[in-house]
Design a protein around this nucleic acid. Structure first.
Length: 277
DNA sequence: TGACTAACCAATACCTACAC
DNA sequence: GTGTAGGTATTGGTTAGTCA
């Protein structure tokens, strides 16, 4: 497990735009005992006007406060940890234990880096420096998903962004179709959320992937996965229950992979001055 | 000056209104 | 009903601001 103490969500204590606006909305909408607090994009705009704050991209508030910034202490103290989209331009604060998934500590499995040299040499040496797309590329080449799921995984789409009823837009970093080794099984859909070092695995995003699959792949089994690289370049793979309710999301299985770059790969990477990322 | 954080930008998918 | 244009929403990446 990474020894870097930096939290995966920033504290938001110095926010002068998003946190004050969210607090304004919360204080307006919340009544003691409420289990959810709903608001709209128009509420964000209205709160900004009341506070005399200019906000150039109101929708960004919801995304930032959901993924990259902790909800304010006042809101969390009432039990609200989840900020989710519940329709186009509609959002809901809900109660849960936490907003982000804590990575379980498991013994790393060492696997060779099977990324072809022409590709690998153009990526950073340390996986901790990868962005999510580079991470998915190396994970695919190294057959991490096959090892983790016990199935043969075939990439269907990358970076999918589609509208999902009652959610709004959902974005998936990758969607795979998985079948058993003998190939005669009804395909399982494997939606994947990949996270670089700086980003947290977010409950809402995992549940949005499940909702996406319910709409676009009805009748198929769904195995939602998150792939997260940590500061030590270890790759964590987590499988969740296929729930659309963030408060019910639990980790079913997890594994940690230590992808070992060969000496030849390392030497070529160091020789290569051009980097894609 | 560098690290960290917050806010903005840009790309793109989606929605809606309107003309035909 | 279909096509299209313009506006809206989402989110990864970038930039600007702050502070030690």
């Amino acid at each position: 497990m990474s020894m870097d103490p930096r939290p995966l969500q920033t504290h938001g204590l110095s926010s002068r735009v998003y946190v004050p606006i969210l607090m304004e909305i919360f204080q307006e909408k919340y009544t003691e005992g409420d289990e959810v607090v709903e608001f709209t994009l128009d509420d964000i705009r209205a709160a900004a006007i009341r506070l005399g704050i200019s906000v150039r991209n109101p929708a960004d508030l919801a995304y930032r406060m959901r993924s990259r910034t902790e909800l304010p202490e006042v809101i969390r103290s009432e039990g609200f940890y989840i900020l989710s989209a519940v329709g186009r331009g509609k959002y809901r604060l809900g109660k849960a234990e936490s907003a982000i998934i804590t990575l379980p500590s498991t013994e790393p499995r060492q696997v060779p880096d099977l990324t072809p040299l022409p590709v690998r040499r153009l990526l950073p040496e340390r996986l901790a420096q990868f962005d999510e797309q580079a991470l998915l590329t190396v994970v695919d080449y190294c057959k991490i998903l096959d090892d983790f799921t016990g199935l043969r995984n075939f990439r269907l789409r990358s970076h999918v962004r589609k509208s999902v009823p009652k959610i709004g837009q959902a974005e998936l970093d990758e969607v795979c179709v998985a079948i058993s080794e003998d190939g005669d099984e009804f395909p399982t859909i494997v939606p994947i959320e990949a996270k670089a070092v700086a980003d947290a695995v977010n409950r809402v995003q995992i549940c949005a992937m499940v909702s996406f699959c319910e709409v676009y792949f009805p009748g198929h089994a769904v195995r939602p996965l998150a792939i997260k690289v940590d500061h030590d370049s270890l790759v964590h793979v987590l499988e969740f229950n296929a729930t659309e309710n963030a408060a019910d999301l639990t980790i079913l299985r997890s594994a940690t992979y230590d992808i070992r770059t060969s000496d030849v790969q390392s030497a070529l990477i160091r020789e290569t001055t051009q980097r894609l990322l």
